[in-house]
Design a protein around this nucleic acid. Structure first.
Length: 279
DNA sequence: ATATCTGCCTGCTCGC
DNA sequence: TGCGAGCAGGCAGATA
């Protein structure tokens, strides 16, 4: 499940290898993968364009083109974006949804088992990513920014961290990890957080995402980086996917509940339902 | 307006 | 062994 650290890993890999590549031909096998414009229009517009840069905003990959347009890719659950040689057997993968031939013979391939992923070709990226909340690893992201997005909301903290307009880039795994590190119960609502708790949460979000990028992300089930070894952060998860295991901090059994239709993992001792811990 | 629910999708695991 | 139910979950769009 690609979240911010996984998308960042893919972006840095593609930045080294894709920039300078020129598209010569477009293949779309599942037209709904192309969110905008119509798949046939994209197939007409993209050939001839050169990739000039690779960026990331939240969980979106931003592939800049020399026309000034941007190819935006969201991997959602099972999407993969990778460069393949022209004779790669992976181009015959049944789950390949679109691929772009490059002038040097390589192919930029989008594979997506569950067809949730989407690709846009736009002149103005704000059309797609304009409503995203602050970028949590940006140095300009402050506890005050977080407070501004959380304080007005009477929603469970877990749901707030999954809301991409509150903070960009967190998914189910890192939301649970950040709340654990901050010592905040996932069912606490936004308005109830103290300044100290928001400060801890701000730091926890940045710590978890930074650690995970250092490990090239978390490989569970579907996600793996485009090249080389898989991510390794799955070995360092403190609560996500660890129900009934001892809490790494206090030893109590990790609990698993459902919040906002998502499986949610937390320590009932380190993340009390209300108020601060005294320890 | 905000909060919550449903649909999109496929493949794996579980219980009978 | 076979098979249906449940689950995984990001996000758009609908509903309350």
């Amino acid at each position: 499940m690609p979240e911010l650290p996984e998308v960042e890993t893919i972006a840095s890999e593609l930045r080294r290898s894709l920039v300078g590549g020129r598209v010569t031909r477009v293949h779309v096998l599942w037209s709904r993968t192309i969110a905008q414009p119509d798949a046939a229009v994209l197939a007409d517009l993209l050939p001839g364009q050169v990739f000039t840069g690779v960026g990331r905003r939240g969980k979106y990959l931003l592939l800049g083109l020399d026309s000034g347009d941007t190819l935006i890719v969201h991997l959602r659950m099972t999407g993969r974006l990778e460069l393949l040689p022209g004779d790669s057997p992976a181009l015959a993968n049944t789950h390949i949804r679109a691929w772009f031939e490059l002038a040097d013979g390589r192919n930029l391939a989008f594979t997506d088992q569950r067809k949730f992923g989407r690709i846009w070709l736009v002149g103005d990226v704000a059309q797609v990513i304009g409503k995203l909340g602050p970028e949590p690893l940006d140095w300009r992201f402050t506890p005050d920014d977080l407070a501004e997005r959380i304080r007005p909301r009477r929603v469970a903290m877990k749901a707030l961290l999954l809301d991409q307009t509150a903070v960009a880039g967190l998914g189910n795994i890192y939301a649970d990890e950040a709340l654990f590190l901050a010592g905040i119960h996932p069912l606490r609502i936004g308005v109830s957080l103290t300044d100290a708790e928001i400060g801890r949460l701000h730091d926890a979000i940045r710590q978890v995402l930074g650690e995970a990028i250092g490990e090239r992300g978390t490989t569970l089930r579907d996600y793996r980086p485009a090249y080389g070894a898989e991510g390794a952060y799955q070995n360092r998860l403190r609560v996500y996917g660890q129900p009934d295991q001892p809490c790494p901090r206090c030893g109590a059994a990790i609990q698993r509940i459902r919040v906002a239709q998502r499986s949610t993992h937390f320590c009932p001792v380190c993340q009390p339902t209300r108020g601060e811990t005294t320890s």
